[in-house]
Every structure is written in structure tokens, then in C-alpha cells.
């Protein structure tokens, strides 16, 4: 036997990774910190020369942020819950539609046309339509988010299945699997990276859509709280919410990154120089 087995190579790489991870993060974070410091500096200086409804001081924004995260936490949690429910639903339905398109040829052109038409309807139209169709604000928000997000998953999952190597299908077919086994053992693991990638690219967009939907018609949630603050000329509160949303987006991106690293650990790491 001439092939050498790289015993323990994987473990060694894991160990090396965690050791250098902290310094990598610091190095990657440093430019971000510089940018944040400059933005805060400019805001502070601007606040000295303008009324507080144009540019409040950094400390008053900080104070407002503190109040949001303590007294107004229910707004944050409500918004996150709405986002989580709608995203879960959209992932399930979108993935199912994508799989049906990928696995059942005759239905595919009809379903794909439907999804593409949906994808072409502006988010604003859905928001206005939802106001006419539904009274309950929770259902409105859920509806708006679902119809906006589902096409992303449906189309990406369908494309993922189309990109499934024919070689694999043929090789697995020699074992004579059932259709369910093909789905469960081949298609599902194959589309997971595509689902994660889609989530990463639309999570920020989805968050903005919940907030818009809340602004239009909800009593609680970040969007409605921002609407109230704007009505009361509380610029520091509006900016505090904005800061919080930026932070939330960073947290989402990090979280998805960690999930990807865990779920996709089988992938070789490509280094492009």
C-alpha cells in the first residue's frame, strides 16, 4: 500500500485554528473599531453645533440605548420572535417548494413561474395588500415576511438540486434507494449549504422588512417603537434603535458563520492567493 494516511491531520488543524482564532478576530475587528470610533467622534462634534432633534450627543444615544435594552426589551424580543417564526416557516416552505421543483419535473415550470412572479412583486405592494387582507397585525407581519422570503429559498434550493452532480445520483442509484431515501440521504445534505448561504444573505433584508411591517401596523416591536420615537422627535432614541439593529445584524452574521463552520466542516478550505 503506497498511500500514506495523514493520521491526526484533522485534529492538528483544529488545534492550530483555535490558537490563532483570537488574534485573527482581533486583527479583523480592529478596522471596524477604528471606523466606529470615527463615526462616534463626528456625531459628537456635530451634536455640539446642532439641536438635539438633528444630532443628539453620543452620551444621550448611549443612555437611550441602555433604556431600550432594559425597559424596552419586549420590543426587541417581539421583533426577534416574529422574525424567527416567519424565517422558520419560509425556510420550510421555500425548501419544500425548491425540492418539489427539483424532484418532480412536470410541476416544475408552473411552480417556478409562480415563484418568480412572487419574487418580482415589490415588498411595498405586499405590505399594502396585507393591510387590506388582514386585520390582525401578527398575521399581517407573518404574511408579508413569508411571501417576501419564500422565493429566495425556493429558487436557491431548486438551483442547488439542479447542480447536484449526476454522477452521485447514478452511483447512489446503484443501491436502489427509495425516493424518500434519495431525498433524505442525498438531496437534503446537499442543499444544507445553500440554505445557510441564503439565510446569510437575506437575514439583514428580512430584519428590515419586519421593522417596516411593524412600522405600518403594530403596537409593539422595534418598528413601532421607532415610529413612536420619530413622532416624539426623540432623535437619540431613533439612533439608539439604529445602533441596536446594526449590532443585531452583526450578531446574526456571526451566528450563521459559526453554524456554517460547524455544519460544513467536511469542506476543504480553499485559500486563494
Amino acid at each position: 500500500m503506497t498511500d500514506a494516511i495523514p493520521a491526526g491531520a484533522a485534529e492538528k488543524r483544529e488545534a492550530g485554528k483555535s490558537a490563532s482564532q483570537l488574534s485573527t478576530w482581533l486583527a479583523a475587528g480592529a478596522p471596524t473599531l477604528v471606523v466606529i470610533a470615527v463615526i462616534l467622534g463626528v456625531m459628537e462634534v456635530a451634536s455640539w453645533y446642532t439641536p438635539s432633534y438633528v444630532m443628539p450627543s453620543v452620551s444621550s444615544i448611549g443612555g437611550a440605548l441602555w433604556r431600550l435594552m432594559t425597559l424596552d426589551l419586549h420590543h426587541v424580543l417581539t421583533t426577534l420572535l416574529r422574525l424567527a417564526i416567519a424565517m422558520t416557516f419560509a425556510i420550510a416552505v421555500g425548501t419544500a417548494l425548491g425540492c418539489i421543483m427539483g424532484m418532480f419535473r412536470p410541476i416544475q415550470p408552473y411552480l417556478r413561474s409562480l415563484v418568480i412572479i412572487d419574487a418580482g412583486i415589490p415588498a411595498l405592494s405586499w405590505m399594502l395588500i396585507a393591510v387590506f387582507w388582514f386585520r390582525d397585525p401578527e398575521i399581517r407581519i407573518f404574511f408579508i415576511l413569508s411571501v417576501i422570503i419564500i422565493p429566495f429559498y425556493a429558487l436557491n434550493v431548486h438551483d442547488a438540486i439542479r447542480a447536484l452532480p449526476k454522477d452521485w445520483v447514478e452511483a447512489i442509484g446503484t443501491f436502489r434507494p427509495s425516493l424518500f431515501q434519495i431525498f433524505y440521504l442525498l438531496i437534503l445534505p446537499h442543499i444544507v449549504p445553500y440554505i445557510l448561504m441564503t439565510t446569510r444573505s437575506i437575514i439583514g433584508y428580512a430584519m428590515r422588512m419586519v421593522i417596516f411591517a411593524e412600522l405600518i401596523g403594530a403596537a409593539i416591536g422595534i418598528g413601532s417603537a421607532m415610529g413612536l420615537a420619530q413622532g416624539a422627535f426623540e432623535m437619540n432614541v431613533v439612533l439608539a434603535w439604529t445602533v441596536l439593529l446594526v449590532i443585531l445584524n452583526l450578531v446574526f452574521q456571526q451566528a450563521i458563520g459559526l453554524i456554517e463552520a460547524r455544519v460544513l466542516r467536511y469542506r476543504p478550505e480553499a485559500t486563494i492567493r
Partner: peptide, 27 residues
């Protein structure tokens, strides 16, 4: 029947053991 091809056609998300087990899983 057991079939093998010119290219290995292994599934990248399974380890060597997982790939060997694949047919047994289907059965």
C-alpha cells in the same frame, strides 16, 4: 449489485466510514 466507477463519486459530507456505510443504510 455493487458498482464502482472511474471517478470515486464519494459524498463529500460523509467520512470514509460514512461513505462505506451508505449502501447498508439504504438497505
Amino acid at each position: 449489485i455493487g458498482v464502482s466507477f472511474q471517478n470515486d463519486r464519494l459524498l463529500p459530507w460523509l467520512t470514509a466510514r460514512g461513505n462505506i456505510e451508505f449502501g447498508l443504510r439504504i438497505l
